[in-house]
């Protein structure tokens, strides 16, 4: 990591953390969402720095481009009375603090186990990824013991992480991927069923009916006698 990358990392990480703090600190909920978007954006920048460009772009497309827009939509249209909200604030403090402490402990456990883990194992683990798709030319390793490490280094240079991710996602984790898809589908169907109501009063445009209509069904020509009316 050279000086420019290091500088970029500190800028992105600093802005990301600061905007994450502002999400909970700012008084205006719309500002909170805008800070959240800034945090997502900087997280995407961090992904680019570690070479995970696919994840970075997907983070921007999905979270910033779609999810946060809907957040913003809802928050802008809500009519929130801030004074009222602040009154009952303290009664949620114990629950909030508990959740916060649990999250903190979990993060510390994960971070601690990662920091203490044996690095040689971590380096060798993605070698299984290489086995999935042996299409790319892999340099012949000099010794049997170093196969995994050498193969992985060569692959990382020659295969984009989009291909890498696809090769793993659609083979090893295929069932989990399908299950995630099914869960999302159920969520969509559920959300639609909850909000869909039959409103008999509203007039809907039925394009098929409009197209099928013929002139003789709706227009009638009558011969009107003078001074007689219809």
């Amino acid at each position: 990591m050279n000086a420019v990358q290091l500088l970029l990392f500190y800028i992105l990480a600093l802005v990301c953390t600061a905007s994450a703090v502002m999400v909970i600190a700012s008084r205006n909920p719309v500002h909170s969402v805008l800070y959240l978007i800034l945090a997502f954006f900087n997280a995407a920048g961090l992904f680019v720095l570690i070479g995970a460009e696919f994840l970075a772009m997907v983070l921007v497309v999905v979270y910033v481009g779609a999810v946060a827009v809907l957040f913003l939509f809802v928050v802008m249209m809500l009519d929130i009375n801030f004074v009222e909200m602040r009154e009952g604030f303290l009664q949620y403090l114990p629950v909030g603090a508990l959740v916060g402490i649990i999250l903190l402990v979990e993060l510390m456990l994960v971070g601690g186990s990662w920091a203490l883990a044996d690095r040689t194992e971590v380096a060798a683990a993605p070698a299984t990824v290489v086995m999935v798709e042996p299409a790319a030319p892999v340099a012949v390793p000099p010794e049997g013991g170093e196969t995994a490490v050498v193969a992985r280094r060569v692959r990382a240079e020659e295969v984009t992480n989009t291909q890498m991710l696809g090769a793993v996602l659609y083979t090893e984790y295929f069932y989990l991927f399908q299950a995630a898809g099914a869960i999302l589908l159920v969520a969509i169907v559920g959300a639609i069923t909850l909000t869909l109501r039959e409103r008999p009063a509203t007039k809907r445009q039925d394009i098929g009916r409009q197209v099928r209509r013929r002139p003789f069904e709706s227009v009638e020509l009558r011969k009107v006698k003078p001074r007689a009316g219809i």
Binding site: M57, V60, V61, G65, V69, F73, T160, N161
Partner: peptide, 19 residues
């Protein structure tokens, strides 16, 4: 490597200016 996704990301951000 992800040029198309980058363009998709940029165009999906365009909505923020307007909203």
């Amino acid at each position: 490597n992800v040029g198309v996704l980058y363009l998709l990301a940029v165009s999906s951000l365009g909505v923020y200016g307007i909203i």
